[in-house]
Amino acid sequence: MNALDATRKWLREKCPLIDKNNRFNANYLGASGVEYTLRTSGEKHRQNIVGDDIATHDLVFEAQLPFGTALAPNLAAADFFAGLSAWVRGQAACGQYPEINGYEVTELTASNAGVITSATATDARYQLQLQLVMKERT
């Protein structure tokens, strides 16, 4: 399983904040309603001194959530992303990472939680950036 699919599966199955009734896509977010997606935003590779591949994958978790002039949905979205960021940091602190074929995840970081990337009068798209650093299993 690749980094995108494994991380999506891990979030879907393990994170208590992800509503299992909502769609959770890969590299696609629909036009309306509550949905989640995880998309790739880059990767890089280097070799360590013994020649193992050290891969860094940048991923973006996005959610489309209710938005508008009412304060409650906007605060709920902020709370969701603050909680999601804290959950990811907690999993990293415990060494609980996604299972990626051929690699061992050595680091997972979260940043820019709850940044709005687009908005209409009723919905907004928010994001959380994730970075996985992995060492090739030999």
Rank of each mutant, 00 (worst) to 15 (best):
M1F: 02
A3C: 03
A3I: 02
L4K: 09
L4Q: 07
A6D: 04
T7V: 09
R8G: 05
K9F: 11
K9N: 15
L11D: 01
R12C: 01
R12F: 06
R12D: 01
E13D: 12
K14S: 06
C15W: 02
C15M: 00
P16Y: 04
L17F: 09
I18A: 00
D19N: 14
D19C: 05
N21L: 02
N22W: 02
N22D: 12
R23Q: 11
F24V: 04
F24C: 00
F24W: 09
A26E: 06
Y28M: 10
Y28G: 12
Y28V: 04
Y28I: 12
L29R: 05
G30P: 14
S32N: 11
S32K: 15
G33W: 02
V34P: 00
Y36T: 12
Y36P: 00
L38N: 03
L38W: 00
S41T: 07
S41L: 10
G42K: 04
K44A: 08
H45Y: 14
R46E: 10
Q47M: 14
Q47L: 10
V50I: 10
V50R: 01
G51I: 03
G51R: 04
D52E: 14
A55H: 09
T56A: 00
H57G: 02
H57A: 11
D58L: 10
L59P: 03
E62D: 08
Q64P: 01
Q64T: 04
P66A: 04
P66V: 11
P66W: 10
F67P: 13
F67N: 13
G68W: 07
T69K: 09
T69V: 12
A70S: 12
A70D: 08
L71V: 13
P73Y: 08
P73W: 08
N74P: 05
N74A: 10
L75G: 00
A76K: 00
F80N: 04
F81M: 02
A82W: 00
G83P: 12
L84F: 11
S85T: 10
S85F: 00
S85Q: 08
A86D: 14
R89C: 04
G90V: 07
A92T: 05
C94P: 01
Q96I: 06
Q96F: 05
G102C: 08
Y103G: 07
V105K: 12
V105R: 13
T106M: 05
E107M: 13
L108D: 07
L108K: 04
T109P: 06
A110V: 09
A110D: 12
S111Y: 02
I116V: 14
T120V: 03
D123K: 11
A124I: 10
A124Q: 10
Q129H: 01
Q131S: 10
V133T: 15
M134F: 14
R137C: 14
R137N: 07
T138W: 15
